[in-house]
């Protein structure tokens, strides 16, 4: 009987001792975590999509709490609604950030773009791209195996019948995961209210582009010349929209009409 009592007593004492040590250590070594981090975490969508540039929502929450502002930080899928909530937590005003979405810069459908070979390998863009930059004659064309569609956490990008990926504007949150997963690098984020784009990524010389695809930008510079206000600019054999807000004006419209391959596309 006494053995049991002694054991219980000794163990109790030992346990008490360690408990006290741990309690003291817990007080002394407490890691002070900003309580706002938790609140911001709750405001974020919790998708851990990585669109903000951090591995997960927690990383972003920490950074925002540390900075105390939303400057340069933000949650693309959450958009303005989440930004407002976080601003309320931090007690600051939000500046309206421009919501972005993904866009595929290629119109090289099967009907438009020529093939240089028949591809019978693994059905992913990444694999096809390894074989001489893919089966398309144009090395900047959408390969249409849907690596972007597989990567999209929001089911917002699909390969259309025509053979080119199309973004579902309603579903797209602008997280940018498809941008990273496209081996051909022809998807980019654009502001949601941009309604004119150059739907081509070919940096080949004009003559080569023209041979490869009916709707390629051939870098003729007609758009640049016809929009003296600088709505379009041609760099590296490829036209691009320099300032989409200027595309509404008359001069830019002429430029769009003059485009010989009709690669400048008006959305909406």
């Amino acid at each position: 009987m006494s053995i049991i009592l002694i054991s219980i007593f000794t163990m109790g004492l030992l346990a008490m001792f360690f408990a006290v040590v741990l309690v003291v250590a817990n007080q002394k070594l407490k890691v002070r975590e900003d309580p706002r981090v938790e609140e911001i975490m709750n405001a974020l969508p919790g998708l851990n999509c990585g669109g903000c540039g951090f591995p997960g929502c927690h990383g972003l929450a920490e950074k925002i709490a540390e900075h105390g502002s939303l400057e340069g930080l933000g949650c693309p899928p959450g958009g303005q609604a989440v930004a407002d909530k976080i601003a309320a937590i931090l007690g600051i005003e939000t500046s309206a950030s421009v919501k972005k979405r993904a866009e595929v810069f290629c119109a090289g459908t099967r009907a438009n773009a020529a093939d240089k070979a028949e591809y019978r390998g693994i059905k992913t863009c990444a694999a096809a791209r390894m074989v001489d930059c893919g089966p398309k004659a144009c090395n900047y064309g959408c390969l249409g195996f849907g690596d972007c569609a597989k990567a999209c956490p929001f089911d917002a990008i699909h390969v259309a019948e025509s053979g080119v990926a199309v973004v579902d504007i309603e579903k797209c949150t602008g997280c940018g995961i498809c941008v990273k997963n496209c081996p051909t690098r022809i998807i980019a984020l654009i502001p949601c209210d941009q309604d004119v784009i150059v739907k081509c990524s070919s940096k080949d010389k004009g003559a080569v582009s023209r041979k490869n695809c009916k709707v390629a930008c051939i870098a003729c510079k007609l758009c640049e010349k016809n929009s003296p206000d600088g709505a379009f600019v041609v760099t590296g054999n490829l036209a691009s929209v320099a300032d989409y807000k200027k595309c509404q004006q008359g001069a830019a419209n002429t430029a769009i009409e003059k485009c010989p391959t009709k690669c400048i596309v008006k959305l909406n």
């Binding site: 000794t10 030992l14 741990l22 250590a25």
Partner: peptide, 22 residues
Amino acid sequence: MGYLQYVSFIIVIASLVQFVEM
């Protein structure tokens, strides 16, 4: 109290790991 070796050692180790973690 050699018979308490196992139990007391486990307590020590568990508390130590907690401490090291903190």
